[in-house]
Amino acid sequence: MSKPRAEAEHDSDEHETEKMSRILGSSVAELAESSEHADYAKYGYHHVYLANIESIPEITRHFFDAGYLLEMVTCQDRRDDAGTMRLVYTFNHLAHLDRHLVHADVAADAEAPSITSLYQAADWFEREVYDMYGVRFSGHPNLKRILLPEDADFYALRKDFGRIEDAPQES
């Protein structure tokens, strides 16, 4: 059976794509506040960045132009530690494994820019983040609840909601 196209591309320009990911890595690192390499064997991703929330659309534009897929957008409630919500974006390339994790801190009541104009996948991911954490996204075409009932008045995955009494206490 003839090799599928994507695999053939990968073999012939492995050098090219590695060069591209290095260029991508450095251009994103310039935009981000901090960037580090991560050991894939231990963590499951290759680079992790901490970026200013304002620079997320530009960073996303770099990944989009390099052909990276948006795998996941999620959030972590860090209002107890740092007073912010931390958004996490994951990008990966299909032809060569290169996972980038981008963190962006959003202040507790602030809005984050939406990236649905580039990646429509973010449409539902951002709706889920809004539904579960209450982070609003400016520029989102249809920001409303997705999993919880429409008239719910709570944000489910926040740390101050829903600790059950006989849950194991963090020891």
């Binding site: 507790a108 009541d109 209450g134 075409p141 249809n142 920001l143 409303k144 609840r145 429409e150 008239d151 719910a152 008045d153 709570f154 944000y155």
Partner: peptide
């Protein structure tokens, strides 16, 4: 922070 119920429906629809 107030949590308001579902805002406007999908504009595409």
């Amino acid at each position: 922070m107030s949590t308001e119920p579902n805002p406007e429906p999908n504009p595409a629809m």
